[in-house]
């Protein structure tokens, strides 16, 4: 592209050049933040993971770790008994729960987008989990044994019986393969976790649904389209960018959630056991896993995404 042109012998910005300058001016806050604050911190963190740190009164000193600096990484992957298991566990539980959360939140957003009495109340209730599961509130809830025993989040005997009955019913009267049945029953059983984890996603979908112009629906209804066709031909394509956002967000949220065992392990390693190097190495291995999964998921979904205004 030509960002410059020559006029009267002087070098000037061309139209694309001007556009580029404006674009960079608009994203300037982010550029400063990223290159001034974020990137240096990331580099520091990588340096920590390759070294042993001695904290002194005036600051800290880094020594290169053994095995050419890879000591902590090797230890996490080959010696530490818990690390690999935790890693696989968090990836698996993410794979199970992300589709459920996306489907549930889309369903809930569609429900909340309809007109009915008490819609405002229902909306505010659905948004509550964002408050209930964030930051300090979540931490207190997890540490509060009494309330956890009081609330019915844990399965008790009668609930367990129901759970068995549902599975038996599905097995006897439907021809679904066993893995699907067990997937469905765990989904139903973990409904609290799913509902609570999908507050933000519902809101994102809702905002997306409301930005679809009603005239599209009017036009298609005039042509005789049914609700079902409207959904697949209008709502779904128009909302597909939001599905991408939500999938990315859900995956990240599952991984960096404070309840995630891996996160806890990293935190205790760094701050309670004061092993900065080892903790940083664990965090980086974990991070690489997240990045790979996100790339795959993002690539798969973005092939199907439809943009109203493509350029």
């Amino acid at each position: 592209m030509n960002y410059f042109k020559r006029r009267n012998g002087k070098l000037r910005l061309s139209l694309t050049g001007k556009e580029a300058v404006w674009g960079i001016l608009f994203i300037l806050p982010f550029l400063i933040g990223f290159f001034g604050i974020f990137l240096p911190m990331i580099i520091d963190s990588v340096r920590f993971s390759f070294s042993n740190m001695d904290v002194e009164s005036t600051g800290y000193v880094l020594h290169k770790a053994a095995n050419n600096g890879w000591e902590h990484y090797l230890r996490a992957l080959t010696i530490d008994p818990d690390f690999n298991m935790l890693l696989i566990n968090s990836v698996l539980s993410m794979l199970v729960r992300v589709p459920l959360i996306i489907i549930f939140s889309f369903f809930a957003a569609t429900l909340l987008n309809q007109k009915f009495k008490g819609r405002a109340v229902a909306r505010s209730v659905f948004f509550l989990p964002v408050i209930l599961t964030s930051g300090v509130v979540f931490g207190l809830e997890n540490s509060d044994l009494l309330v956890r025993t009081l609330s019915d989040v844990n399965m008790d005997a009668s609930e367990f019986e129901n759970f068995l009955n549902v599975s038996r019913f599905l097995m006897e009267y439907t021809n679904l393969p066993k893995p699907i049945i067990s997937y469905l029953t765990t989904a139903v059983n973990g409904i609290y976790d799913i509902v609570v984890a999908s507050g933000v996603q519902i809101l994102i979908f809702l905002a997306g649904l409301q930005s679809i112009s009603p005239s599209l629906y009017e036009a298609s209804s005039m042509e005789g389209a049914t609700g079902w066709e409207n959904f697949w031909k209008i709502t779904f394509p128009m909302i597909s960018p939001m599905i991408l956002v939500n999938s990315v967000y859900t995956i990240i949220d599952m991984f960096t959630n404070e309840a995630n065992e891996m996160m806890n392990e990293i935190k205790t390693t760094i701050f309670s056991e004061v092993k900065y190097g080892f903790g940083s190495a664990m965090a980086w291995i974990y991070f690489v896993c997240i990045a790979i999964i996100l790339l795959i998921a993002g690539w798969l979904i973005s092939r199907k995404v439809f943009y109203y205004d493509e350029r």
């Binding site: 974020f38 240096p40 911190m41 990331i42 520091d44 963190s45 920590f48 991984f255 960096t256 996160m263 990293i266 935190k267 760094i270 900065y276 940083s280 965090a283 980086w284 974990y286 991070f287 997240i290």
Partner: peptide, 8 residues
Amino acid sequence: PPQIIMLP
């Protein structure tokens, strides 16, 4: 994850 950059 924010825990990575906590110390820096």
